[in-house]
Each structure stands twice: as C-alpha cells, then as structure tokens.
Design a protein around this nucleic acid. Sequence first.
DNA 1: GTTTAGCACTCACAGTAGTCGAGTGCTAAA
DNA 2: TTTAGCACTCGACTACTGTGAGTGCTAAAC
Lengths: 367, 367
Amino acid sequence: MALGRAEAGKIESGVRAMAENMADRKKAILRAVTDDYISTAEPVGSRTIARKYGLGVSSATIRNEMADLEEEGYLEQPHVSAGRIPSDKGYRFYVDSLMPERNLTGLEEKKIRAECAKRSDEIQSLIRATAKVLGELSNCASIVIGPGVKTAEIRHIQLVPFSSDSILVLVVTNAGLVEHKILSIEHEMNPVDLENMSRMLNHRLRGRSLSQMRGKVLRDILSDLDAYASFLEQMFELLLSAIRSSDENRVYVDGLMKLLGQPEFSEIERARPILEFLESDDLVLTELSGSASRGLGGAQVTIGSENTREELRECSVICAPYGIRGQVVGTIAVVGPTRIDYSLTIALVAHIAESLSDLLTRTQSIK
Amino acid sequence: MALGRAEAGKIESGVRAMAENMADRKKAILRAVTDDYISTAEPVGSRTIARKYGLGVSSATIRNEMADLEEEGYLEQPHVSAGRIPSDKGYRFYVDSLMPERNLTGLEEKKIRAECAKRSDEIQSLIRATAKVLGELSNCASIVIGPGVKTAEIRHIQLVPFSSDSILVLVVTNAGLVEHKILSIEHEMNPVDLENMSRMLNHRLRGRSLSQMRGKVLRDILSDLDAYASFLEQMFELLLSAIRSSDENRVYVDGLMKLLGQPEFSEIERARPILEFLESDDLVLTELSGSASRGLGGAQVTIGSENTREELRECSVICAPYGIRGQVVGTIAVVGPTRIDYSLTIALVAHIAESLSDLLTRTQSIK
DNA sequence: GTTTAGCACTCACAGTAGTCGAGTGCTAAA
DNA sequence: TTTAGCACTCGACTACTGTGAGTGCTAAAC
C-alpha cells in the first residue's frame, strides 16, 4: 500500500514501531545511504559513508550496521563486493520517517508561476504547460490528467448553428472545460429555435453532471420540447458517446526524455515497458484514477513493488490530485526510478497540484 | 533538396541522367542492396545478393559492380570487411527510380478507416487518432500537425455568457477547428446584448481569417458597436494573443516507442537528439511548415543529410500536407531511420493525408 | 571485353585470461 | 562495543586470440 507524506500522522502502527525501535545511528546510516544513492546512482559502501557523512564511527562499524539493515530488509546488495542500495522497504521508511524537509527554491517557484500563469486562460494550454514544467523540474516523466467531462457539472450548454445540416453543441463544465461536438441534423433549424432550445437546456441541465443526463431529467426535457424530440434524442445519444471517448484525451505526458536520461534507463530495454505504459493513455488513466479518491492535499508516493502494474515495478510514482473549490477534478504525477529524489519531487508535486487548484478555482469559478 | 515521388516527372536533369545511363544490372544490384538492408538492417554482401536475388551472375561480378557503385557514391561500407549499405544518395536514387510500387493491403486500409472514422466528429480526436494509426502502421515516429487557427477563415463566432464577470468567445474556423477563450469583463453584460454582438461579429467577420482581423475591418466594427468599443478592443486583443500561442498546441506526436524499437536507435544516445526534437513542438512545427507550401497530393521525402536540422541527419522524413477543399491546412509526417521502408511509408503517408483531407472536407464543409 | 574462380587480406565480434580495486565479512584486539 | 586488519569476492576493464563474413586483386575462362 502506498502511504503519503501527508498521512504521516496516521501511519500504520507496524511502521511506526519500526521507526521507534530503530537506533538513531542506524537511521542516520540508512538516511546517508539513501541520500547518497539518490544523488549518485552508485551503490554506496561503508567507507563512503564514513568519509562523506561524519557519523564519528569507523567504516567497520558502519559495515556491521549495514549488514543488520540488509538483514532487516532495508538495504540490498547488487552483488557481494558492491556497496548497498536501498530496497523498496528502505525507500518507504526513508520517505515516511527520514527524508529531509524540502521547500522549493525561489527559482523553482518562479518558473512554475511563470509557465502556468501565462497559459491560465485556456485549460488545455494550462494542462500542457503544467506537464511540461513538472517534467522539467523533476527530471522525470510527468503526467497530468485533465479534468474529465463525465462527472463534471454542466455550467453552460449552447447550440450554435454550424452549417445547413449540422449544429455545434457546446458544453462548458464547472472545471472550465469546454467540450464541443458537431451534430448532423436532418432538416435545417432556425437560429431562434436553437437559441430557445439552448435556454431551455440550460435551465434544465445546469448544475447536473453529464452522466446524470439520462432517465427522468431527459424525459422531462423531451416532453417540454416535444417538437424537437427526435432531434434531442439523437443529440443526447451522440453527446453521451462523445463523452465516453473524450476521456482518452485527458492524459498529457511530458519529460519522456528526462526519464531516458536517468542512468537506470540507459539501456532501452529497461525503459521500453515504462515508456509503453506512458504512451497508452487509458492505462495511465486507470492506474492513476485511484489516487483521486484520496482527496486534495499532499502527495502520495508509490514505491517500486508497491505498484500493482508490472511495468512500474522499477519505478516510483508520486502523484497528487488537484481540484476546484475543494472538489477533485484531476491528478498530476511524476514517474521516475525508485531512486527518485523523493524530497524534491514530493514538494514539487504537492506545490504544483496546489497552485493548479488555486489557479483553476480563481479563474474558473462561477461567482 | 527533397524530391517527392509525386514530382518524379519533373525530376532534375542531373538525377535523370544518372538514372538513364546506369546499367540495368547495376540498378538491380542497388535495388537489391537497398531492399535487403531496409528489411534486415545488416550490411549486405555480394554473396547474399547473388544467392537471394537471382541475378544470374556470380558474387565476384556483383562485387565489382558494388565497388563501382561505391565509387559513384551510391553505396558505402561501414568498414572494409563488411557488406555495403546505401548512402543517402543511394536512397535518393532508390526512392526516385528503383523503389517498387506499393499499395496498402486491405488490412492496413481497414485499420486506417476504422481508427479515423470513429473519431471524425471531433477534430482533436481525429488528429490524435491519425497520429496513432500512422505511428502504428509505419513502425516509426509519426507527427500530425493540426489545422491552425491563424490563417483559417472564420466560419462562426459566438459570445456565450460564462459567469458574472466573464464571457466565452467561441470561434469556429472553416477547418472545423473550434477555439475558445474566456474573457474577463468589467461589468455584467446581458445575454441579449451578447447575442446581438455575436450576430454583428458574424456578419462582419465570416469568411475572413483571424490574422486579417485588424485594421479597417476592426475599426468598422468598433464604430458600429461603439457602445461596446472598449470591451471589443479588449476582446480582440486577447483573441489575437490567444491565437498566437495556440499554434503550439497543434503538434501531435506518436509512436516514439516504435522509433526506439528500430535497431539504429537501440543505443539511447543515438535516439536522444531525435526524441528531443520531437518533444519540442515549435521545432517540429517550423521544420515541417515548409512542406505545406508544396500543395496537396503526394508525399515528400527528405533523406538523411538532406535534412537541414542537425538532429535529423540520421533520419528520413516522409511528409504530406492535407487540406480542406483543396486548401492546405496541416501536415502529417513520419520520422524514421534512413533505412525506413520508403515504399510502404510513402504509400501510407500519401493515403492517410488523402483520407484525412476527404474526411475533413466531407464532415467540415459549409454547404 | 566480361565474367568467374581462387586467394590473400582486413576487421568486427566473441570468447578467454589476467589484473585491478572497491567493498565485504570475519576475527581478534582495544 | 568499536576498530584495525586481512582474506576473499566479484564486477569492470584490458589484452589477446580465433573465427568468419566480406572484400580486392589477379589470372584464367568464356
């Protein structure tokens, strides 16, 4: 199971126990090993620890402690004459208890603001820009899942004349998402009729979600506008099918190159399954959709084997939902090697999710 | 310079001369070498040619011919004891004169139709689906540049009430592209006013391009609607700036994984510059924008060193513009190793460009 | 004048052996 | 409990060698 930093307070008692009865020196060593491995990507030996992280004990002592840590499952050895690297369990403990608090530098915050602010007027651009800046700052692959239209409330619906045998149906959701769809019609409709219908539909549908748009509500509308019944039926049909497929267009991935720059993925065969996963929008969508249920605030970390998907067993995923006025509408995530800089990335993801929420709430809210 | 197959008729006289005075057997050998290398990615030796492609002569003869071809610059040798591979010049000659005619199989055509047809109601989806199917069938990276909004004609413009201090401006272009932008306003505007303004704007702007939307036309509108002058000025300002930035969102890339699967890019360091290029939307856009000027019909091939961009010197690019009612609105392209299957890819690109044009013209045209 | 057989030569590639050094575990002394 | 010392392990690197695909050249055959 994935435990987020935000949930450190309600950490499982098992984990807490581990944290408490581990000697401070052991913790320091585990922290040192993890920090070092995160920054160098090389297995770290006892002498390195003794020299670089002045713990006041000799390498032999550290060696003994490391042997213990390995036995307890926090460290592992790629081969017998190499240094140690953290295991997934080791990373988990590091994330939950050892990791240094990290705040974004002014430069980083500035970059985020700059990139996002200038695009905040159009939601697609904003989402794209977010993915880009997240990839750049994390040095890993980044994912942003845009607001979906299915569960969102309808804020506005409008029928626009398009050509003699088609009209454009425009739906604006409360997340500021604008979806549109072109609809063929059998006989021309005059603009005034369309206008009237728009008004009517607005009246009936505002505040409802698109997926609620069936059953009684729909029948009511049909009976109200029965002159157009057959047209409306067709419209709803098409609209619903469009919505079903529009989910695939919600996923934005960036920073694939950054991922390939990580030494663990320098052989392409290691990287391939992950990239394949990231290229498949619907897999990404289903994998991350779980995180939305945790509610806003704080990033969630899934380390290596904690991932259910086979392809991600060598990766860590750090994700956080974002929302509008407290309601979750999407997720942002970073995918990197398990050696990812947790401290930085968590701060980054949490901050960007938050500022995205702010931005959306500020610019998209109905007054 | 890149010469397309469609232009085979008006091929440069220099090239034509080459084609004519090259002995048939030499051509056959060059063709065999190229075909073989395209399918195996291994340098091909004289014995292989003699055995696999029954030319009725011994390997020694072929060896002599190959030495000539190398001297003339059509073949090259990775090292002295390896077989030959085609040079860029060799590929060029192959593409212009030797390549077998290739038609898509029923299966391929079916796949294209299936993938495109089910998305044809919404232009963004259609573009995405096109990029995907192109990547899949070509086994290379694919690029689709969507219709831009800058030069397109306005078909419809509509102001939609959005919130108390903002409205939504909706612009539909003749390419079926729907752009929208949310605009803050100072004081609330009543729906009837908006409707009137929409009508007015439509009347004035329909048929013009957005980039024409300045100067006299604009002044005329302002004087007609001078009660809203300050609002309109602000609106045009924002609209134009939005348009400027929306070009970046036109580029869709897919099939990166396929590219990495090609043996020439199995070392990541070879692939990196190309992937970096493909990740940068604006570079891709400027690089491919030239091809739009060649008019519809037929794919254009740029081989290795013919590419101006350094990153693409190891690649071939096959691209074709697509359009609506004969007018170019975008480009599709495939990027692969110079060893790319020209015959297949050219057929593929040409066919998809054509069917995209058809689809757009059919579904998006004003009657 | 072509074409072909024969042969010496080249060179990438794979496999083997040897060396180096980082890092360990264990033992015994402090 | 900590530390110094030491033997040991094993991946990484280097050097060397054999193999084989493929060439170029020459001389004979057509």
